[in-house]
Structures are given as structure tokens and as C-alpha cells.
């Protein structure tokens, strides 16, 4: 085990596509969202709503970010008892334009400033990572909209974009398959896998064939990106895999028995609107979001050449 230096699974980065180089994206001014770059330049205040999350700007700087895929500041602070839920709720109820939740909590001495800043910054970069994923719909900016949290530590737009790009590369280096980021995860049988770390073990213990990385993050009160990192490392080690193709309904994964209700009756009968399944005998990989996203990124990169 020690003499032969076979590269452990997944740690060897595959050959890089030159088009994915950071410099190419940087030259285009961040390259993640031209709209965001423009809003930063005009020092806009408001909220940029994108498919997978929102960025709140104040005078062109990012003051807050939210994404349904990332646990919010409240989850991070409440999950392990840093704040009591009642205290948080009280601050949310009392917050107004002048006194945001952050200021109320700090003034009342409910949470140390360093802890709140740290947790908030982490939450902002975490949500921004998802909010800035390539999307199929254009973003929308609402001028003037503030956030009830209030301003803590504004972050320049370039810093958020740079960090988001760096995070994408980091994940790609760990394990170049993005499928585990969004799909339900299941444990994999493996031989001679490296022992997971303590933090990875907690993630692995929550893997049940239904939950996604984001679900696990919320359950553990952890940042979603941290969970993505652990999940990719676990995938690289062969300890877990994504369900593919991802199940569309909340049914347990193993190939749903095709009921064949007949083409006309199908969609109307069930509220879940089952996908048109491929005809039996042919197994086509279902076209799903990660693929489209990858193609879009590829297209964007090619256009940037």
C-alpha cells in the first residue's frame, strides 16, 4: 500500500479543458453574471433574483444571499443552540428598515459580533455559490429591496464571483462528476475504502437514498458547500454515489414499476405528472438539470474563447 504510488481514486484531476481556465472567465468581468457586474458598477441597491437563489446588494456590494439549496443563517445559528429559536423569532418580528435582525441581536448582546459576522459571511458565500450557478432563466433585479437582516459586513461583488469560481474548481478537482451535488445519495458497497473523517462520517450517516447533499446540510446545520465537499470526497473514495437517473417522485428509487396507464390517461390521472418513461427495453439516460447546466457552461466557455 505504501510502495506503489497509484493515485487514489478521484484525487487525480482529469486533464483540464483549457476553456475552463479561470483567466478566461475573469477577463469577461467575473463571467458569472454580466448583470451582477453591471449592478456592482452602478452601485445598485436591491435584490437580484436568479433561478437558484437571490443576492441582496447595497450600494453595489453583496450584503446578503439566500438559496433554497443552502441552509440560511437561522438554520446555522439555531441548529446547534447558538441562539434560542424564540430569541431569533423575536428579533425577526421586531426588525424594521432601520434596525435589522443583526443589529437587534448584537445590541441585545444575544450573540457575539465575531460569531455573527463569521456565520453570516459563511452563509452569504454558501448561498451565493448556488445563486450564481448557470441558470436557464434570466435573473431579475428589484431595485430598492432591502433584507430584514440588515447590513453586517458587505462583500464586493468581484470577491463573491471569484470565490464562486474557485469553489467550482475545488469541487471539480475533488471529483469531477457534479451529479452528487443535487441528486439523492445512497451509500455504496466498497472494499478497502479509506476511513471517512469525523465530519464525513456525520454526512455518511445521513445518506439514505432519499436525501440530497442540501437536505443533509440542513439536517446537520452545516453549510451546503461544506457538505458538497464532503460528498464529493466520499464519492471519490467510493463510499457513496448519486442515484441516477434521479427519481422524479418521492418514491423509493428502485426502478418504479411502469404502470402503463395508457398515453391519454397518464398525465391527468396523477397529480405528480409522471414523465414519459422511455419505452421498455431502451434505457436512455434521462435528460436532467446537471447535463443541461454542463452544456450551458460549455457553450458559455466556448463563446468566451
Amino acid at each position: 500500500m505504501t510502495a506503489v504510488r497509484t493515485p487514489p481514486q478521484g484525487t487525480t484531476p482529469p486533464p483540464r479543458l483549457p476553456v475552463r481556465e479561470k483567466s478566461a472567465a475573469r477577463e469577461r468581468g467575473g463571467g458569472l453574471s454580466p448583470m451582477l457586474t453591471r449592478l456592482a458598477a452602478e452601485r445598485a441597491t436591491g435584490v437580484l433574483e436568479r433561478e437558484r437563489g437571490s443576492l441582496y446588494l447595497a450600494e453595489g456590494k453583496v450584503v446578503h444571499a439566500e438559496s433554497p439549496l443552502a441552509p440560511g443563517l437561522d438554520v446555522l445559528l439555531l441548529a446547534h443552540g447558538t441562539l434560542a429559536p424564540a430569541v431569533w423569532q423575536d428579533a425577526v418580528d421586531r426588525a424594521d428598515e432601520e434596525y435589522g435582525v443583526a443589529r437587534l441581536l448584537l445590541d441585545a448582546g444575544r450573540v457575539p459580533r465575531g460569531a455573527l459576522e463569521l456565520c453570516h459571511l459563511e452563509a452569504v458565500f454558501d448561498a451565493a455559490y448556488f445563486a450564481l450557478t448557470p441558470s436557464s432563466t434570466p435573473g431579475r433585479f428589484r431595485y430598492g429591496a432591502g433584507h430584514w437582516l440588515g447590513t453586517l459586513r458587505p462583500v464586493p461583488v468581484e470577491a463573491v464571483e471569484r470565490e464562486t469560481l474557485r469553489r467550482r474548481e475545488l469541487l471539480h478537482r475533488l471529483w469531477p462528476d457534479p451529479l452528487t451535488d443535487g441528486a439523492p445519495l445512497r451509500r455504496a458497497e466498497t472494499v478497502a475504502a479509506p476511513a471517512p473523517t469525523a465530519r464525513q462520517s456525520a454526512v455518511l450517516a445521513s445518506v439514505d437514498g432519499v436525501r440530497t447533499a442540501s437536505d443533509i446540510a440542513r439536517e446537520l446545520g452545516r453549510q451546503a458547500f461544506h457538505t458538497l465537499v464532503d460528498v464529493r470526497r466520499l464519492a471519490a473514495a467510493g463510499l457513496l454515489t448519486a442515484l441516477f437517473p434521479p427519481p422524479r417522485q418521492h418514491r423509493p428509487p428502485p426502478a418504479a414499476p411502469p404502470l402503463h396507464p395508457g398515453p391519454a390517461a397518464g398525465p391527468a390521472a396523477s397529480p405528480v405528472a409522471p414523465d414519459p418513461d422511455p419505452p421498455p427495453g431502451i434505457t436512455l439516460p434521462r435528460v436532467n438539470d446537471p447535463d443541461i447546466t454542463l452544456l450551458k457552461r460549455l457553450r458559455d466557455a466556448l463563446e468566451a474563447l
Binding site: 448582546g109 459580533r113 465575531g114 459576522e117 459571511l121 469553489r167 475545488l170 453549510q223 458547500f225 465537499v229
Partner: peptide, 28 residues
């Protein structure tokens, strides 16, 4: 109560300090 910046500025008062940072070791 100190925030992140105050904490880092305090670290810069250590003899010989050239730089100080607060870093997340999972994401970098």
C-alpha cells in the same frame, strides 16, 4: 465585542506580525 476586523487588527499588534487572516479550512 470584537468583530472579525477588530480581531485581525489585534493579531497585527503581535510583535513581528506581517499579516493576519481568518480562513475557512473546508472551502479555503
Amino acid at each position: 465585542m470584537p468583530g472579525i476586523d477588530e480581531c485581525l487588527l489585534e493579531a497585527m499588534r503581535l510583535p513581528g506580525a506581517r499579516g493576519a487572516a481568518l480562513v475557512d479550512w473546508t472551502s479555503g
